[in-house]
C-alpha cells in the first residue's frame, strides 16, 4: 500500500508523454547541465521559465509534481541555513562565534537549494511522463556505444529493467516484514551500539531472504524457458525519432547554450 514518494508514473496523453523516451532522457540531462551551469539570478530564471513550458505541456497535476519538493522542505532549509551561516564569505553581515552570516553564504545556500529543486523537477517530469519500462529500453539504446569498450549493454539493460519491476514487490514484502517483527515486540532503539546493530537483523535478514528467494525463482523460470543471455533476445524494431522529439532536443540544447552565453 505504500507508494513511491515522488515521481511515479502518471498516465496521460500529453505531448510530453508521447515523446520518445530516449529524447526525454537526453533533454533531461541537457537541461540539468543548464541548471548546474547557472550562476546568476538570470540564469535560474531562464531555466525556471524554460521548465514552465514542459510542465504546462505535460498537463500533469501540480500537486504530485511539487509534492516531492515540499517533502524536502525541511532538508532544504537546513542546507540553506548551513551555507548561509557557515560559509566563509567576505561580506559578513553578522557573526556570533563560529557562526557568520555572509552575503556569499546566503547566495551559495540559495544556489544549492535552487539546483536541487530544479533538478528534482526535471527528474520528476521525466519519471512522471515515462513508464519505467520505457526508461529502461531507452537507456539500453543510449548505452549501446559502451559496447565498444566491452560492456554487455543488453545484459545491463535487462538487469535494470528487472530491478525496476521488482521494486513494488520488494516494498510490499518489506512492509509486511516490518509489521511481523513489530508485532513480535521488535524495538529499534537501543543505547549500546552492538545491540543496535543486532536489532536490525530481524528486519534485514527476512528482507534479503525473501528478495533472493524471488530472484532465485525468477532466474530458474527464465532458464527453464531457454534464456541464456540478453544478447540473443528478439527485440521490437526501434522507431526512429519523430519531429517533436527533435524539437524537444533542439529546445533543450538552446536553453543550455543561452545559459552558457549568460555566464560570459
Amino acid at each position: 500500500m505504500r507508494t513511491l514518494p515522488a515521481g511515479q508514473y502518471l498516465p496521460g496523453h500529453s505531448l510530453l508523454h508521447r515523446l520518445d523516451a530516449r529524447a526525454k532522457i537526453l533533454c533531461a540531462l541537457i537541461l540539468m547541465t543548464a541548471v548546474i551551469g547557472a550562476s546568476s539570478l538570470w540564469g535560474y530564471t531562464l531555466v525556471l521559465v524554460a521548465l514552465l513550458i514542459p510542465i504546462l505541456i505535460s498537463r500533469l497535476p501540480l500537486r504530485p509534481t511539487v509534492a516531492a519538493v515540499r517533502g524536502m522542505g525541511g532538508f532544504l532549509l537546513v542546507i540553506l541555513l548551513m551555507n548561509a551561516l557557515f560559509f566563509k564569505g567576505e561580506t559578513v553581515l553578522a557573526s556570533w562565534g563560529i557562526i557568520q552570516l555572509s552575503h556569499e553564504g546566503i547566495k551559495q545556500g540559495f544556489r544549492i537549494v535552487s539546483n536541487v529543486v530544479l533538478i528534482l523537477i526535471i527528474g520528476n517530469l521525466l519519471t512522471m511522463t515515462t513508464l519505467p519500462t520505457q526508461v529502461a529500453t531507452a537507456l539500453e539504446s543510449l548505452i549501446k556505444p559502451l559496447k565498444l569498450i566491452g560492456v554487455p549493454t543488453e545484459e545491463v539493460a535487462m538487469i535494470i529493467s528487472v530491478a525496476i519491476q521488482f521494486i513494488p514487490t520488494l516494498m510490499e514484502a518489506t512492509e509486511l516484514i516490518k509489521m511481523a517483527q513489530i508485532a513480535r515486540g521488535a524495538r529499534f532503539e537501543s543505547k549500546k551500539l552492538s545491540e543496535r546493530a543486532v536489532s536490525f537483523l530481524p528486519l534485514v535478514v527476512p528482507v534479503f531472504i525473501s528478495a533472493f528467494r524471488r530472484a532465485e525463482e525468477l532466474s530458474l523460470a527464465m532458464e527453464a524457458r531457454g534464456y541464456r543471455n540478453a544478447k540473443n533476445r528478439t527485440r521490437r524494431q526501434k522507431e526512429p525519432l519523430a519531429l517533436h522529439d527533435y524539437a524537444a532536443l533542439t529546445f533543450s540544447v538552446l536553453i543550455c547554450l543561452i545559459q552558457f552565453l549568460l555566464q560570459r
Partner: peptide
C-alpha cells in the same frame, strides 16, 4: 542468469531499503 537476477534484486533493494 542467477548472478544477473541477484544483482537486479540488490539494485531494487538499494531503492527499497532506505525507504523502509
Amino acid at each position: 542468469v542467477q548472478r544477473s537476477i541477484f544483482t537486479a534484486v540488490c539494485i531494487g533493494l538499494c531503492v527499497v531499503l532506505p525507504m523502509a
